[in-house]
Nucleic acid binder design. Structure first.
Length: 303
DNA sequence: AACCAGGCGCATG
DNA sequence: CATGCGCATGGT
């Protein structure tokens, strides 16, 4: 590999690339990256140009290879920032581990999931669409619907007999025929929601930077739930995954409730005070706690 | 066949 | 503000 196309990112303490691989490869068919031989392949759009990168572990570094695209200094800096944000490499998670260790029900996680980072979804539009698709349906089906959408409307590049997709632009989804979405097994409401959100992004009335600029978490949540299709769960999930907001707890999430139940923290989903009590002990690390609880769920294996 | 799945919007108390 | 209900649609 031409060294001009290779970048090394130092791996921080309490970071596990294997946990990144586990999460991105956990028996689901995600259409926005490919895992092969311990490496992650992903296409990333930088100002209308699509680049393809490969990420693998190399000693104490993540090795980032630019397989397709122009490795200008600007692009390299962007890609490094992208990966650091995606894998949340700039956060010192030791304080979170200190909290986990004080809870006998959860302390084991500091060893079993050691170095697991909150894997993000940088693209806010993608994160919200993914939420809408996933509302109240099982994840296997949700990933299928997402794949249909992305393969139809998302930019594609080909490399070594594989096709790599990036998420469709809002401008594209804002103008799709609703019947085309319904043919992909979108329900009427979800098709309406996705098109509405796409129009909001396309018109500039919703975007990540403006959202980030709002004064606090409550304001950001309110700005999101003002849109049809974004309820409390979606708003919290999007803030957790795209803006890496610690307070983004997707309350009511079935996976979260199942994990709380399996750890004997609750026995009924109505025990909200117990949930609040738990999260109040993890102030500043709520989203990390959610992510670790999700990690503890056993994923169904597809045939 | 019935119940479930990483909810949401809207109408009522 | 909390609760209840209809909604869509595939998976098990």
């Amino acid at each position: 590999m031409n060294s001009e196309r290779t970048i090394l990112i130092p791996i921080p303490a309490l970071f596990s690339f294997d946990e990144c691989l586990w999460f991105l490869n956990r028996n689901y068919d995600d259409c926005l990256h490919i895992i092969k031989d311990g490496a992650i392949f992903k296409s990333i759009e930088i100002e209308k140009e699509i680049l393809l990168i490969c990420i693998k572990e190399n000693g104490g570094f993540l090795e980032l290879d630019i397989l397709v695209g122009e490795p200008s200094q600007e692009n390299k800096a962007y890609l490094v920032a992208y990966v650091r944000e995606w894998f949340d490499m700039d956060t010192n998670i030791q304080p979170f581990y200190d909290k986990l260790k004080t809870d006998g029900r959860l302390a084991y996680m500091t060893e079993r999931y050691k170095g697991l980072r909150l894997i993000g979804i940088s693209n806010l539009f993608e994160a919200i669409c993914w939420c809408i698709i996933g509302q109240q349906i099982n994840l296997s089906f949700a990933y299928k619907v997402k794949r249909r959408l992305v393969e139809r409307y998302g930019p594609r590049i080909d490399f070594n007999n594989e096709s790599y997709y990036t998420f469709p632009e809002p401008e594209i989804l804002a103008n799709v025929d609703i019947d085309d979405l319904k043919a992909m097994q979108f329900s009427q409401q979800k098709a309406d929601y996705v098109i509405g959100i796409a129009k909001a992004f396309a018109s500039g009335s919703l975007d990540k930077e403006s959202l980030r600029a709002l004064p606090d978490f409550t304001a950001r949540k309110k700005a999101l739930t003002a849109h049809k299709g974004i309820g409390a769960w979606t708003a919290n999930y999007a803030l957790m995954k795209s803006l890496k907001e610690p307070e983004g707890i997707p309350h009511g999430d079935i996976g979260l409730l199942n994990a709380l139940s399996s750890h004997n923290i609750i026995h009924e989903r109505s025990e909200t005070s117990k949930i609040e009590a738990l999260f109040s002990n993890f102030a500043g690390w709520e989203s990390y706690l959610v992510f670790y609880l999700w990690r503890s769920l056993t994923v169904k294996v597809l045939e």
